[in-house]
Computed example of a mutant assay.
Amino acid sequence: MAENRASEYTEGTPCWVDAQLPDVEAGKRFYGDLFGWTFEDQPQGTVRASKDGAPVASLAHKTDGRLPTVWTVSFATPDAGALCRRIHAAGGQVVAPPVPFGDLGVTALVTDPEGAVFSLWQGARTPGFGRRHEPGTFAWVQLYTRDTRTANTFYGGLFHDALFGPDADPDFGRAPVSDVFPAEMPPHFLVHFATPDPGAAMAEVVRLGGRVQVPPFETSYGTAAVVTDDQGASFALLRR
């Protein structure tokens, strides 16, 4: 278990995940049953999910039906404004500029040059995950891209220490979309949650009303299966 300390989150380290859902109450039932999460209300109308008393994710109501139902990963930064400027200079876009999230920190929404969406988190009282790398918590995020060379240049420039520094232990990989998905799938991040048995967890997803996108397959970082919840948000189940 990784305890929550700001020093763990070098700029560019995945530090949080959140789901934008049409029905947060249905999301609480689905993920509560699947992962054993419990929930409490947070600022800005979100719901924080905890595992064994430690924060692991959040759920939020999707206010515009035209927006996708998705899981989004946040990368840590000590200065969201400065990182937004670097992202823009490197060919990405700032979708929503930095804003305070209660007194917990500052958040921003951005894209890379291919349009893959991710968030930035400048933590104040809450640096990030209270638990990760154990069943029912964040384990990995994979960027599926059409151009891995461009992606590696972009993220390598932004997050060099987290990805390649002497103490790097990244939870973030890049791969061509066509490795797993149809070639027409847009570039995107896929959040992975840890499980000791992807096949059994996949069956539980189906029992709860979700569906299987990609059955278990081997990766360089473990055995993964891609599923959606009962509202259409995609995520992966991972045994490392």
Rank of each mutant, 00 (worst) to 15 (best):
Y9E: 08
H188W: 09
E11M: 10
L238Y: 03
T13S: 14
T107C: 04
G36K: 07
T107K: 02
W37M: 01
T38H: 06
H192G: 13
V95S: 02
R239M: 10
A54W: 06
F101N: 08
S178I: 07
T148G: 09
G128R: 04
T137D: 01
L34C: 10
V94F: 02
G27S: 07
T38I: 02
P14I: 03
F172I: 06
F193L: 15
F235K: 04
D229M: 13
R132W: 01
N4R: 05
V177W: 07
H188V: 00
A6K: 13
P170Y: 08
A124P: 00
T38D: 12
H61Y: 11
Q93F: 03
D79Y: 03
R66P: 00
T72M: 14
P187S: 15
I87R: 09
S234R: 06
W140C: 08
V212S: 08
L109W: 01
S220Q: 15
R174I: 15
K51F: 15
D79P: 08
F75C: 06
A203V: 02
P113H: 05
G222A: 04
R48C: 09
G105N: 11
L109I: 14
R211K: 15
K51R: 12
P198W: 10
D229G: 09
V95F: 02
R239D: 12
V180R: 15
M185Y: 06
G130K: 13
R146Y: 04
V56T: 06
G157E: 07
E11W: 01
A19E: 05
D197Q: 08
T137F: 01
D41V: 09
A200G: 06
Y155L: 05
T153E: 15
A183Q: 11
D23F: 01
A80E: 10
A233I: 05
D179W: 06
A236W: 05
E40P: 00
A175F: 08
G123A: 09
W121R: 05
L143E: 04
A194P: 00
G209R: 04
Q122N: 10
T77I: 00
P176W: 05
T69M: 03
Q93W: 08
D112P: 10
L190Y: 00
D171H: 12
V205T: 13
A6I: 10
V17Y: 09
P43R: 05
P55F: 09
G199S: 07
L67F: 07
D79V: 10
A82R: 08
